[in-house]
Design a protein around this nucleic acid. Structure first.
Lengths: 244, 244
DNA sequence: AACGTATAAATATCATACATTTAGCAGCGG
DNA sequence: CCGCTGCTAAATGTATGATATTTATACGTT
């Protein structure tokens, strides 16, 4: 019947108020918050309590803290990193398998590719083109780790779908997948195949052929899934001892 | 060429070490960490530094902190809450629209339903059945807010797909959607419709008819999307002033 | 003009003390 | 024997004040 009133922790109240200010638009990305000392005075609490709140806001990716003169807390730009990290943490806790991850990607990314084919702007196409070019450059200069360029392509594609929800989902899935992928030896032929696949997907998107983009993406992911899939290996870089 | 060495912040090192212990399996869900005082001694830092680390770990959903005797930090069970909150934060920052959210759900959930039809265990079916029964009970007792029961059904269904990646995705999407939904007046007929839809989806899953489950889920989501979709309203409960 | 240095502002950390929460126990009374 | 009350200890929450580090900026020297 009655509701508990003021469950401990003053920092929660501070977190809430600052969040409201950010989401309400009073504090926009890039804006500086007052210093810890000033915040402590405004909220009528000690600096410690303010710092607790800042730590949480920072770890959630809402603010960025810089030390030194002209330092302080600044409202952060939206980024997939905290979402991705959060998801990664939970999947590790739950001991999700690579197979689970592959299944999710096969469900989401082909469809995202088809949407991107409908909505990609010229800038999006250029970004994807640039990612492919960077991958080629890295290849010819002998860099065996094509993963960063591969990530750039897929993210540019997800961006082209113009749906932030799907963008964050794709970003998060890929982060974990590539972490696992990087643990394997990156085979040379995989890099070449990836670049060729990306090029064809880009062409389909440029031609506004959503169906073909979807099919190509599905094929692309299936190929790499087969190469990585060690029959349900855990999606974690460090192997646990046998007992597990 | 060279990597920066020891970027400030001792608490980051503590966070890293504790994470490794958790992901490495040395600390399992439910296990208690040493007290702040003991941790401070082990890490050779002050209690403040330890607390900073604890705040971050707690906000990321890796540990849970209880105050009082027998209190302390305990390794948390995997939960979609932190992922969902993270995603919600970023979507608000990016001013994602309900339309974006609906698109993502329409892409993911029908497919999840079809997978669930293949993999649901008897317990899963019972859980879904129980969620529907709870919704009916709440309806007859005059509770207009059927949302919690609706959430329970969809989560039980996502659980039945036996893929933690998809489960977290569905959980996160739904959290934000229902927050927006709750801001509207919950119409009585919507509750009845939802319950009826859920029942039919459950039957399709029970009959192992993945295709029908997918179609029903798509129809279900489309119906509610149409009811909620106010032509691209921001996915946030509090409306910004006109200027925005 | 380039380089080093002092300075100031802010966060990072430390040490200590006190407040608050909460489980468990002991004691009292029925 | 049961149940309530209140004490107590252990842990986190908060406060205070001080020191250490980081870093942009201004200043001065060469």
């Amino acid at each position: 019947m009655f509701q508990p009133v003021r469950v401990t922790r003053a920092s929660d109240g501070i977190i809430h108020q600052i969040k409201e200010s950010i989401f309400g638009g009073e504090l926009r990305p890039g804006h500086a918050l007052p210093s810890e000392k000033e915040l402590a005075e405004q909220f009528k609490v000690s600096r410690i309590t303010v710092r607790d709140a800042m730590r949480v806001l920072e770890s959630q990716g809402l603010i960025q803290i810089r030390v030194g003169a002209r330092g302080g807390a600044f409202v952060a730009r939206p980024s997939a990193a905290p979402v991705s990290e959060s998801l990664t943490n939970m999947l590790r806790l739950k001991q999700a398998t690579l197979r689970d991850l592959v299944e999710a990607r096969l469900l989401v990314e082909p469809h995202v590719a088809s949407i991107a084919a409908q909505r990609a702007t010229p800038e999006d196409l250029r970004a994807m083109e640039a990612a492919i070019a960077a991958a080629r450059g890295a290849r010819t200069s002998g860099d065996r780790y094509f993963i960063p360029s591969s990530v750039a392509f897929h993210l540019a594609l997800a961006e082209a779908a113009k749906n932030p929800v799907l963008f964050f989902a794709v970003s998060s899935f890929r982060a974990l997948f590539h972490e696992a992928l990087a643990a394997l030896l990156p085979a040379d032929d995989m890099a070449d195949r990836a670049i060729a696949d990306h090029q064809r997907i880009l062409e389909a998107i440029g031609a506004r052929d959503g169906g073909r983009a979807r099919d190509l993406m599905h094929e692309h992911l299936s190929y790499f899934a087969a190469r990585v899939d060690g029959a349900g290996k855990p999606a974690r870089t460090k192997r646990r001892p046998a007992a597990g």
